[in-house]
């Protein structure tokens, strides 16, 4: 066990945890967040996605020791942003939400993409969410939503 400090949704946090503990478990069980979810535990499904230094990562594969000194943003933190609102509205408008289990991860994958490429092509969107599995939507309505957010989000990204 060791004190591990990082920035979580804009706040400095220090936890006393085993450095090999999964960031996902820290977020869900120690911090009480429900946004990051466990779908596979193997970095394959993306339901546990969070942003680490503004890049998309699978929190089930991040030993919390690797988060030390870095900035973590979960959907709970991101949902305070204007960019979230833009994405959320587009997801609603496009019908991109079904069971919702993949949804927070998808939103964060979209945010990570739009941060780098504010006006992505369809293929760039597909690649950006290729590690976020969705079993309900077949993806096309999610892709449309991200496109919609990009089209109307001028200046936000």
């Amino acid at each position: 066990m060791a004190d591990i400090s990082f920035i979580l949704n804009g706040k400095n946090v220090t936890i006393d945890a085993d450095a090999t503990k999964r960031l996902l478990d820290v977020l869900r069980e120690d911090m009480g967040f429900t946004g990051p979810k466990e779908g596979c535990g193997e970095g394959e499904c993306g339901a546990c996605s969070v942003l680490m230094d503004h890049e998309l990562v699978s929190s089930c594969l991040v030993p919390v020791g690797n988060a030390a000194g870095h900035e973590i943003i979960t959907i709970e933190g991101f949902s305070e942003e204007k960019r979230y609102e833009k994405l959320a509205n587009a997801f609603a408008e496009a019908g991109a939400v079904q069971c919702g289990f993949c949804t927070p991860g998808m939103i964060l994958a979209a945010e990570a993409l739009l941060n780098k490429i504010p006006h992505p092509t369809e293929m760039q969107i597909r690649q950006a969410i290729s590690g976020n599995l969705c079993r309900c939507t077949g993806y096309n309505m999610i892709i449309e939503a991200i496109q919609m957010a990009a089209d109307t989000g001028d200046g936000l990204w």
Partner: peptide, 18 residues
């Protein structure tokens, strides 16, 4: 607009493991 969009998008929806 689906009635459960907001809780699902924001991560507030409580699935059993939550």
């Amino acid at each position: 607009k689906k009635v459960d969009n907001d809780i699902k998008l924001s991560g507030k929806a409580k699935y059993a493991a939550d």
